[in-house]
Computed example of a mutant assay.
Amino acid sequence: MAWLPRFLVDPQIGRHLLRDEGEVIVDEVCKHWVVYVVPALIAVVGVGFLGLFLVSSVSVAWLPLVIGLGLLSWAGWRALAANMDRFVITNMRVFRVKGVLARSLATMPLGRILDITVVKPMTGRLLGYGHFTFESAAQDQGLRDIRFVGSPDARDLAIQRVVQRAGLRGAPRLSG
């Protein structure tokens, strides 16, 4: 993707950090590879239509050409959108940057995270992905559902570790 401008393939996470306050990235989470399967299948169908274009008569050759190029464009757009969707864990907050032409940024300070639910469907358990659901005191936020997270258990532990180190949860009590 070297031919695409950098702003179209890199969400530029570093510019959203509070470097003056000492914020550092603990983990930057890209989508799991499974999200690229559907765009790849769409692209294969698009290539099939382009092959049909080559063997079609001249009077109707434009139709498979248009369909093939449309499917390839759609597949490329879906893959690019998945590439630009990043979930970031820092020492101060979690945030999500997504969007290709128009970008959105959703942020939640670590102190507002009340509960994290990790859901691993059967295919996710086999292929190594899961979905996060964040619960906070706010009713609705852009960080509620993060889907297709690779190594979800490790990512959950990373968030719990950062929250603990920040002193936002009480020390565990030992009964005895």
Rank of each mutant, 00 (worst) to 15 (best):
L4R: 11
L4K: 09
L8Q: 07
P11N: 12
I13H: 09
I13N: 10
R19G: 14
E23W: 15
I25Y: 05
W33D: 06
V34G: 13
Y36R: 02
V38I: 01
A40R: 01
A40G: 05
G48F: 01
G51K: 03
S57H: 07
S57A: 03
A61Y: 02
L65E: 13
I67S: 02
I67V: 08
G68C: 07
G70N: 00
W74K: 01
W74H: 06
W74I: 03
G76T: 03
W77Y: 00
A79C: 12
A82F: 07
F87M: 03
I89E: 07
T90N: 05
V94H: 10
V94W: 10
V97A: 13
S104H: 11
L105H: 04
A106H: 12
G111A: 15
R112H: 05
P121I: 04
P121G: 03
S136W: 08
Q141T: 14
Q141H: 14
G142S: 15
I146D: 04
G150Q: 03
S151N: 12
S151M: 04
P152S: 13
A154G: 12
A154R: 15
Q160N: 09
V163S: 11
V163L: 08
R165L: 08
R165F: 00
R165Q: 05
R165C: 03
A171F: 06
P172G: 13
